[in-house]
Computed example of a mutant assay.
Amino acid sequence: MSLDNVVEDIRDEARARAEEIRQNGQERADEIVAEAEADAEEILESRKAEIEQQLEREREQSLSSAKLEAKQARLSARRDVLQRVREQVESELADLEGDRREELTRTLLDAAAVEFEDEDEVHVYGRADDADMLEDILADYDGYEVSGERDCLGGVVVEGTNSRVRVNNTFDSVLDSVWEDNLKEVSARLFDDQ
C-alpha cells in the first residue's frame, strides 16, 4: 500500500468520523431544541393558567366589590327614606292642633303625674307654643305650674320640687321609644322585607 492510499484511508476515516460527530451533534441539537420547545410550551401553558386564575380572582373581587357597593347604596337609601319618614312624623306631631293636641298632652301629663302624687309643688315644662294650653290643663292639677319651655315637638317634662325625679313625656321621647321598638316593622313595611 502506498502512502497516498494510507493518507486517503485516514482522510476517509476522518471524514466518516466527522460526519458521525456532525450527525450526533445534530441529533443532540435537535433533542435540545425539542426539549426547549417542550419547556417553552409548558411555561406558556403554566403562564396562561396563572393569568386565567388571576383574571378569575380579579373578576370575583370586582363582583364582590360591586355587590358590597350596591348593598351599601341600598342601605344608605333605606336610611334616607327612614329619616324622611321620621321627619314627616315629627312634622305632623309638631303641627297637631286643637283637641287632639290637648288630649295627647293630657294623657302624657296624667302618665307623669303618677310619679308625683306625694309632691306639693310640681313643675311642668313644655313647648313654647303650648304655654296657654298647658296653663288651661294645669288648672285641673293642684300644685302644678308651668315653669318654663322645652325645645320639643309637644308633650311635657315634669319635675317635682321635693324629689329629684324628672319625667320626660314629650312627643319626642314617646316617638323615640315607639320608633326604636317598631323600626324593624316600619322598615319591613316600607321595603317589603320578608
Rank of each mutant, 00 (worst) to 15 (best):
A14E: 05
G25A: 12
E45G: 05
S46V: 11
E90I: 08
A139F: 03
S177D: 07
H123A: 14
A14I: 09
S2D: 14
D136I: 03
D132Y: 09
L93S: 04
Q61V: 11
K48P: 01
R11W: 04
L183G: 05
R84W: 08
Q72N: 12
L175K: 00
L63A: 09
D151Q: 12
R28V: 13
E41C: 06
D172K: 00
E149S: 06
Y141I: 08
V167P: 00
E41N: 12
L104R: 01
D4T: 15
Y125A: 06
N5V: 15
K67T: 11
V174K: 04
K48H: 10
I43G: 04
A111M: 03
S163P: 02
D9H: 12
E58R: 05
G148N: 03
D181Q: 13
E8G: 12
A66W: 03
E121M: 03
D130C: 13
R79T: 13
C152I: 11
G160I: 02
A73G: 01
Q61S: 11
R22Q: 14
V174R: 03
D193P: 06
I21G: 00
G126N: 07
G126W: 08
V89P: 00
D192P: 07
E42R: 12
R59I: 13
S76K: 09
C152L: 08
S2N: 13
L108S: 00
R47G: 03
Y125T: 06
E35S: 12
E180D: 06
E31L: 10
V33H: 05
G98Q: 02
R166G: 01
E8I: 07
E159V: 15
D9L: 08
N182V: 08
D132V: 15
V174G: 01
G148M: 03
E37L: 11
D136G: 10
A188S: 15
I10R: 00
E159C: 08
R15K: 12
D39Q: 10
F191G: 04
A66F: 04
R150L: 10
E60S: 10
R15D: 07
A14L: 09
V6Q: 15
E159Y: 11
S65K: 04
A16L: 04
V33L: 11
E52I: 11
A131I: 14
R164H: 07
E60H: 02
D151E: 15
E135D: 14
Y125S: 06
E115P: 00
Q83W: 09
I21P: 01
E56T: 11
E97V: 10
E97N: 06
A18H: 01
E103P: 02
E145W: 05
G143S: 09
M1C: 06
E31T: 09
R11K: 12
D4K: 11
K48N: 09
E60R: 07
A139Y: 03
E50M: 13
E20T: 12
E69I: 09
R28M: 13
S147D: 05
L175E: 00
A49G: 01
A94T: 00
S64G: 15
